[in-house]
């Protein structure tokens, strides 16, 4: 065999191999694209037979009627939101809102649960410091509140847990006012104002003194609180 023809054959073989590899590559990419293709928007709604039978005049009458019904229903649903004071707490942004109807009366920074977990030295009890989500309402409100330190506060500090309630009382740490919304959670003031806007609390909602005063004055027992 002549060396030139051998070279040509080898070249042809290489070219063939390259074409085959490229072809397989293209097929693989196509398969991946088909398998992973994002789902497009669905086709338009299927028209039920009773609607399909309607003539143009009937449709022209029916559509505005349906629009009016939908509008009324939407309005009726929106009107369910209380017209009096309501409190919204956005735990992701650490912001608190005081609303009166649909109007935002006050918006400010707050601090919510740190998400930290504490287990006592015996490993028997665990606390998760998180602000609960959902619907709550103001149960009570007090001025110059006294904090009765729960067990976790002593464990956190490495102090023995006292037997009597009086030894748990601490004044001047919750600010001027405290608004209870259940399960031992409060909206209250703070000494750590520089930490407002961060998730650093044991589950309560800390607010700046001025905003707390406004919220305290507006809120009444029963005022709804939504935490999300």
């Amino acid at each position: 065999m002549k060396p030139i023809s051998l070279m040509r054959r080898l070249k042809n073989k290489r070219a063939g191999l390259a074409v085959a590899v490229a072809g397989i590559g293209v097929i693989l990419i196509a398969v991946v694209l088909v398998v992973l293709r994002p789902k497009g928007d669905p086709a338009g709604p299927v028209i039920p037979p009773e609607v399909a039978r309607m003539d143009l005049d009937t449709l022209r009458r029916q559509v505005p009627l349906a629009e009016a019904r939908v509008g009324k229903l939407a309005e009726k649903t929106e009107r369910l939101f209380p017209s009096g004071p309501a409190i919204l707490i956005d735990t992701a942004a650490n912001r608190i809102y005081l609303l009166r109807g649909s109007r935002v009366v006050l918006e400010d920074r707050c601090s919510t649960g740190s998400g930290l977990e504490l287990t006592d030295t015996q490993g028997k009890r665990t606390w998760t410091f998180e602000t609960p989500r959902g619907y709550y309402r103001v149960l009570s409100k007090v001025s110059n509140p006294v904090w009765y330190r729960p067990d976790w506060a002593f464990i956190e500090e490495g102090e023995p847990i006292p037997k009597d309630r009086a030894s748990r009382a601490v004044a001047d740490v919750l600010g001027d006012y405290a608004i209870a919304f259940g399960d031992g959670y409060f909206i209250h003031g703070t000494l750590y104002t520089r930490m407002l806007g961060s998730s650093v609390t044991h589950g309560c909602v800390r607010v700046d003194d001025d905003s707390l005063k406004k919220i305290y004055e507006a809120a009444q027992p029963g005022t709804p609180i939504w935490i999300y």
Binding site: G44, V51, M54, V63
Partner: peptide
């Protein structure tokens, strides 16, 4: 209009 009516429903 039919589509609109279905959507409204």
């Amino acid at each position: 209009l039919r589509r609109r009516l279905v959507e409204l429903a």
